[in-house]
């Protein structure tokens, strides 16, 4: 029984390390889109591992924690996608490292045509 609890604590520690990586990534990345990548991915796995580890320590909380894990797993990609779309809509510039931007090529020409119609 004691081994299960220590395993849970170690899993929680790994989750905390992933959250630390996410915050380092959000500081170091050069533009908004890469920050969203670093921030959402590492923090999703980090919080999932943290919740699962606590669930191993307290098995009677496991069902509620699984509900919370499902919620994090559904809501986190959606919010990152919505933020990315908003960033592209208000034309936040991409960093100089960026190689190509297919979305700008496609939607940029469409809006130009609409303005031409007016």
């Amino acid at each position: 029984m004691e081994y299960l609890k220590i395993t849970g604590a170690v899993i929680t520690l790994i989750g905390a390390i992933f959250i630390l990586f996410a915050s380092i990534g959000i500081l170091r990345m050069p533009d908004v889109y890469n920050r969203i990548q670093a921030g959402t991915k590492a923090s999703t796995l980090g919080s999932i591992l943290g919740l699962f580890g606590i669930g191993l320590i307290h098995p009677d909380w496991m069902l509620k924690l699984l509900l919370l894990i499902m919620f994090v797993l559904i809501s986190n990609p959606v919010s990152s996608h919505v933020l990315g779309r908003a960033a592209h809509y208000i034309k936040v510039p991409l960093s100089d490292l960026t190689l190509l931007d297919k979305l700008e090529e496609d939607t940029g020409s469409e809006t130009a045509e609409k303005e031409g119609d007016k």
């Binding site: 959250i19 996410a22 915050s23 921030g39 959402t40 999703t44 919740l51 994090v72 933020l83 208000i90």
Partner: peptide, 17 residues
Amino acid sequence: VIDRVVALDLLTVSSIG
């Protein structure tokens, strides 16, 4: 603005843990 919202989102997700 988006940078700040991403930071706030990350703060929340780590606060859940």
